[in-house]
C-alpha cells in the first residue's frame, strides 16, 4: 500500500535547498502550514524564492524566513501585511514580483495543467501590465502571463489519508489545491490523518497522486 506519511516536519521538508523556489499556502492565518514553515526555518536554506499570497503577517509564518535572511525574492499579491517584508524591501534586501491575486493563482494553475501561458485582461493598461505582450481579442486588451512552478509546495490540509488524498478546512483551502498541481514536490501538513478509504472519494479535493509527503500537524500554537 502506498504510504506517504513521514515521521516529522524535518523529514517532510528534506530536500529544500538554497536557491529553491517554494510555494506556501495560506491567506491571512487560514491555511498557513505553520509546522512546515518552522521546519524550513530550522533547516535554513538561503536565497529562496517564495511564492505565496502574502509575505507573511507576524511571527510563525514566512515573516520568520525573511527575518532570518533566507529569502531572496517574494512573488505575491499583497506583501504589505508583513512589517518584516516592508522593512527589508525598503532597504533593498529582498526582491518583489507583485502579481494580481487571480493572475498569481492562474499562473500556478497553468503550470500544473501543462499550459504554456494565458492571456488575461487583468493588469492591461496598468503599471503591472507594462512590458507584457498584449493581444486584442474581441476588442479588449489582454496581457500574456506565464506559468509559475516551484521546487516545493507547502500546504495545510484538514484530512489526509496515507495515499495523499486531501480535504481542506473552510477558507484555509485558498491556494493549496492549485499549488499541489504546480510544484515538483508537494508536502501537506494535515490536521488529521485517516485510514485509506476514510475520505469519501466524492469529497476528495486534491487527489493523492499530486501529493508526495504527508505529516501530522501538531497542536496549534
Amino acid at each position: 500500500m502506498i504510504d506517504k506519511r513521514v515521521a516529522g516536519f524535518r523529514e517532510a521538508i528534506a530536500g529544500i535547498e538554497t536557491g529553491h523556489t517554494v510555494m506556501v499556502g495560506g491567506f491571512g492565518d487560514a491555511g498557513v502550514p505553520v509546522g512546515l514553515v518552522a521546519a524550513v526555518l530550522e533547516r535554513g536554506p538561503r536565497d529562496l524564492t517564495v511564492i505565496a499570497n502574502n509575505a507573511g503577517f507576524h511571527t510563525g509564518d514566512i515573516s520568520d524566513w525573511l527575518s532570518a535572511g533566507l529569502v531572496r525574492k517574494v512573488i505575491c499579491s499583497y506583501p504589505r501585511t508583513s512589517p518584516t517584508f516592508v522593512a527589508l524591501y525598503r532597504q533593498g534586501k529582498v526582491a518583489l514580483e507583485l502579481v494580481p491575486q487571480g493572475t498569481l493563482v492562474e499562473r500556478m494553475r497553468c503550470a500544473g495543467a501543462g499550459l504554456g501561458g494565458f492571456f488575461s485582461p487583468v493588469s492591461a493598461g496598468t503599471p503591472l501590465g507594462a512590458g507584457k505582450e498584449v493581444r486584442t481579442i474581441d476588442g479588449r486588451d489582454f496581457v500574456l502571463e506565464m506559468p509559475l512552478t516551484a521546487d516545493f509546495a507547502l500546504i495545510r490540509a484538514r484530512q489526509a489519508d496515507p495515499m495523499g488524498n486531501l480535504t481542506y478546512n473552510k477558507t484555509a483551502r485558498n491556494f493549496a489545491p492549485v499549488m499541489a498541481t504546480a510544484a515538483r514536490m508537494v508536502v501537506a501538513e494535515a490536521i488529521e490523518i485517516v485510514a485509506v478509504g476514510g475520505i469519501d472519494p466524492e469529497a476528495v479535493i486534491t487527489p493523492g497522486l499530486l501529493v508526495d509527503r504527508i505529516v501530522q500537524q501538531g497542536p496549534r500554537a
Binding site: 499579491s77 499583497y78 491575486q101
Partner: peptide, 21 residues
Amino acid sequence: WWTGKPDDVPGVGGAMDLACG
C-alpha cells in the same frame, strides 16, 4: 491599489481582478 510613491510598498491583492470582471 498604490499611490506610486517610492516609500509606499505596492500591494494589489485582488483589486485588479475584481475591477476587470
